[in-house]
Structures are given as structure tokens and as C-alpha cells.
Simulated assay, not measured.
Amino acid sequence: MNATAPQVPNNLVWAILTTLFCCLPAGIVSIVFAAQVNGKLAAGDIAGAQESSDKAKKWAMWSAIIGVVGIVLYIVLVMVMGVGGAMSGNY
């Protein structure tokens, strides 16, 4: 019988990218879960590997969302402060 191990994505690339460019705390959690996937696959824990993969993907997604929201809020804040400064009449 030819039994091959199922392919479970570890999402490590997304975890690293969201850690670097979006939200550090959530990205680190994503990296931890992504690092668990290959070890669980090697141990034969397919369900555990899939669960870690899903959690890594979820945390990477939340990290990206937090990063985008933070950037948008920063841009809005800068624009409001710029308009407030221009409206003060001290130019």
C-alpha cells in the first residue's frame, strides 16, 4: 500500500510577512503556529497539523487586518492634523 502524507500548508511565509509589515504581536503568534505544522506532520498528527495550519492562517490574516486599519487610521490622523493646522491661520 502506498500511503503518502497529506499536504498541509504551514503558512510560514504569510506569517513572517505579516509580522514584518503589519502587526508584530499577532504575527509572532502566527509564526509559532506555522512552525508547529511540519513537526506535527512528521509525528503523524494530521489533525493537529491541520489545526495549527488553520490557526497560523487566522493569526496572519488578523495581523494583516490590524496593520491595514492602523495605516488607514494614521493617514486619517495626519490629514486631520494637517487640515487643523491650516485652519488655525498661522501660516
Rank of each mutant, 00 (worst) to 15 (best):
K55L: 14
A43W: 05
W14A: 14
A60S: 15
Q36Y: 13
M1G: 15
E51W: 06
Q7Y: 06
C23E: 04
D45T: 10
S53G: 15
V32M: 10
V80E: 03
V13Y: 13
S30D: 13
C23Q: 04
A64Y: 13
Y91S: 04
A43F: 00
C23P: 00
W59D: 02
C22R: 00
K58L: 12
L12R: 11
A86V: 11
I31C: 09
L12N: 05
L24N: 11
S53I: 02
L73H: 02
K55V: 06
I16R: 10
M81P: 02
I65C: 04
A43T: 08
I46E: 10
A47Q: 14
M79A: 14
G44R: 10
G70S: 06
A35E: 12
G67Y: 05
N38L: 07
S88R: 07
K57T: 02
Q7P: 00
G82Q: 09
N38S: 06
A56Y: 04
I71T: 06
A15Q: 02
L73D: 01
L41R: 00
L24D: 02
C22K: 06
F33H: 15
F21M: 07
V29R: 13
T19H: 11
M79G: 05
E51F: 08
V37P: 05
K55R: 13
M79P: 03
A26T: 08
A56S: 15
A49C: 10
K55S: 07
N11S: 06
V68A: 14
